[in-house]
Amino acid sequence: MRSIMQGPIGVFDSGYGGLTILKELVKQLPQYDYLYLGDNARAPYGTRSFDTVYHYTLECVEALFAKGCHLVVLACNTASAKALRNIQQLDLPHIAPDKRVLGVIRPTTEVIGTFTESQHIGIFATAGTVASESYLVEIEKFFPKANVHQEACPMWVPLIENGEFDSDGADYFVKKHIEHLLGQAPNIDAVLLGCTHYPLLIKKIRQFLPAHIRIVNQAEIVAASLADYLHRHPEIEAKCAKNSQRIFYTTDSTEAFDRQSAVFFGQEVKSLHLDLGK
């Protein structure tokens, strides 16, 4: 019987935000190898159409498969909302039936209802994630009594990627969207940061959000969910290399990626360039 070569766990994002997920994966599951791919050349995904996000995400997933990944995590809410289902149901059976692709929305929605007593949950996300209504659909499956209120925050990612997440200039946009969200339902008592960039704004969000409202840490949820998945699927876990290696790829400038990544990942990285040939 031919043995299968082990490979790293692939972690994909349109840019830098997925590094906040990877940071927690490394913290909770440090023994595994990880290969991170940021499609920075085509970021942001949040305002792009469903078809475009699907096409870009599938292309990057295939690139991770080609580099030996048997399991890929879409560490991007927009890609999870707009591309994951099609990739799982339509593409994997044909291109890689023995490989798996997971997202960040499903594991979050499986537990989000445990963070609220009022049954009113707020979600800050990109316009694309809000428009997809993925959170509304998935939360309904697990917590049908929960009331979900969404707020699109189109300026938050540009603020973060331009290094303004801790500046006075961010105050207006953070306060504005908090007020809009609470205007929908003043009794919201749990808020999800439904974009992997948003943890960098957590100090500002906490400053303007009423103290009794809980901020849900998506990265911790996703990491715990991945640990559970690997436990329940030993056939996939056996294909994941365990040398504690971290490899980073970007489709854009490696210099820019390395400079920005330290803010999201919490330590310096040295990336490689990936040319998707498009």
Rank of each mutant, 00 (worst) to 15 (best):
P154G: 12
D189R: 09
V137S: 02
Y36R: 05
H212M: 05
D33L: 08
P93W: 10
M1R: 08
V216P: 04
H120R: 13
R259Y: 12
H149N: 08
P234T: 12
H70E: 12
L25R: 06
L192W: 11
L71E: 06
E237Q: 11
F50G: 00
P8L: 06
S134T: 08
A131Y: 03
E151K: 09
P210E: 05
L193D: 10
E117M: 05
V174G: 06
T126W: 06
L159Q: 12
T250F: 05
L37D: 02
C240H: 06
G17H: 09
L182I: 10
Y172Q: 13
G38V: 05
P210C: 10
Y229F: 15
A81P: 03
D258H: 05
V26S: 03
R100K: 14
E235D: 15
E59N: 13
G15S: 10
I202A: 12
P44T: 11
L35G: 00
I178C: 06
H231F: 10
I121K: 03
A152Y: 06
A219G: 02
F50W: 02
F248E: 07
N77V: 02
H197R: 10
G183M: 09
L102T: 03
L71R: 05
E161W: 08
H233I: 07
F265N: 01
V222L: 14
I105Y: 02
I213P: 11
N162Q: 15
K270I: 08
G38D: 05
V72F: 11
H55E: 15
G277M: 09
A125M: 07
V137W: 01
N243C: 09
A43E: 03
H55M: 08
F124P: 04
Y16H: 13
P154T: 04
C240N: 05
E24M: 14
F65C: 07
A256P: 00
E161P: 08
D171G: 00
F65E: 05
C76W: 07
K82C: 04
D275G: 01
Y172P: 00
C69T: 08
A81Q: 03
H233L: 08
L84H: 07
I105S: 09
E59T: 15
P93T: 07
P8Y: 02
L64C: 06
A66R: 13
I121W: 07
Q89D: 06
G183E: 11
C69L: 11
M1W: 01
P107L: 00
Q207T: 11
I112H: 05
L274H: 04
G163R: 11
G7Q: 02
